[in-house]
């Protein structure tokens, strides 16, 4: 096997590590926090308190 063959396997292995990290963290996060907290983000929070508009 040449250097580039090792690189190919290395790329597959690294991809797998990153993918596993993401999936494990995702499932763990979903299990730890309630859905209400996770999806509580609302649009326009900063504008609601800092902007003043003439009406």
């Amino acid at each position: 096997m040449s250097f580039w063959n090792y690189m190919e396997y290395g790329a597959w292995a690294l991809s797998a590590i990153f993918a596993v990290y993401i999936v494990v963290d995702w499932l763990r996060t979903d299990a730890t926090y309630s859905e209400e907290v996770l999806t509580s983000s609302r649009e326009g929070e900063l504008e609601a308190i800092t902007e003043e508009h003439r009406s």
Partner: peptide, 26 residues
């Protein structure tokens, strides 16, 4: 609500509409 600072570290990411975890302003 006027004295509510969304970027403050204590109440980071929370907002008057009910956001408890929001995107980070950095």
């Amino acid at each position: 609500m006027a004295n509510f600072d969304i970027t403050s570290k204590e109440r980071d990411g929370m907002g008057p509409h009910g956001t408890q975890v929001g995107l980070l302003r950095v």
